[in-house]
């Protein structure tokens, strides 16, 4: 099932949009909730990395969406019995949608997106925007984790503390994360400049691209010294 990870980025994107369309078209919570659960189960079955973190976020999202809809409908005079299915259906749509795009984001490296876009002969600006749009969030999340590890490595207790303290420390990572994001942007623009990225010239790719994108360079090593 992990071969799903190597699907062409545009195929993944089409699948994600299809899932989103189904999620928003199915009537009510009776279909919506099982469909959302199915989407999350598919993520698990195909081994999407970081699923535990996604599930935590999805549960938080569910709670927030349901709470906001229940309050909203309450003020409009809708009873709890009628409001609950509406809120559940809305949360289910969002879970299915986020699950679909989480799959795209987590299984598409900037390199594989560049390859798919270059093979499709997209204009360089579109290639760059797509790879950065889908690649930047995992990069920032990795940096967020790295800063947390830096805090731990410097003796700052971010694990064995109460949840409010944990949240406060997480928020305190915002400033270094911002600094890191600026550095990352600089590194990307610097590498684009010195490695010849040109908006007027279409890129090529070393990868074989079709329905699937070649995940790594094939190598039959006969001289590996290690």
């Amino acid at each position: 099932m992990s071969q799903m990870h190597d699907l062409n980025f545009f195929v993944k994107l089409a699948l994600a949009f299809a899932v989103m369309a189904v999620a928003w078209l199915v009537p009510g919570w009776r279909f919506g909730v099982p469909f959302a659960v199915l989407c999350v189960l598919v993520l698990w079955a195909i081994g999407v990395p970081g699923l535990r973190g996604y599930v935590k976020g999805a549960l938080l999202l569910t709670a927030m969406v349901m709470a906001s809809w229940l309050v909203n409908l309450f003020f409009q005079g809708v009873g709890i019995g009628d409001a609950l299915p509406v809120a559940a259906a809305m949360a289910a749509r969002l879970i299915a949608t986020t699950a679909a795009f989480y799959f795209v984001m987590e299984t598409s490296s900037p390199g594989s997106i560049l390859a798919a876009a270059s093979a499709a002969r997209l204009p360089p600006i579109a290639t760059l925007v797509l790879s950065l749009t889908f690649g930047i969030i995992p990069m920032l999340r990795d940096d967020f984790e790295r800063i947390a590890d830096a805090q731990r490595a410097r003796g700052m207790e971010v694990d064995d503390v109460a949840l409010p303290t944990k949240l406060r420390f997480a928020l305190a990572r915002g400033v270094p994360l911002l600094v890191q994001a600026i550095r990352m942007a600089h590194a990307i623009s610097f590498s684009l400049a010195i490695y010849g990225f040109d908006l007027k010239r279409n890129r090529t790719t070393w990868r074989n691209v079709g329905l699937m994108v070649e995940p790594r360079f094939p190598w039959k090593d006969t001289n590996d010294e290690t």
């Binding site: 900037p110 390199g111 490695y195 990225f197 790719t205 070393w206 790594r216 360079f217």
Partner: peptide, 18 residues
């Protein structure tokens, strides 16, 4: 300062692809 989140072969091929 000049590398970002690419795989090893992507990073080496990047100047040629561009």
């Amino acid at each position: 300062d000049q590398l970002w989140d690419l795989s090893v072969e992507d990073a080496i091929a990047f100047p040629m692809e561009n």
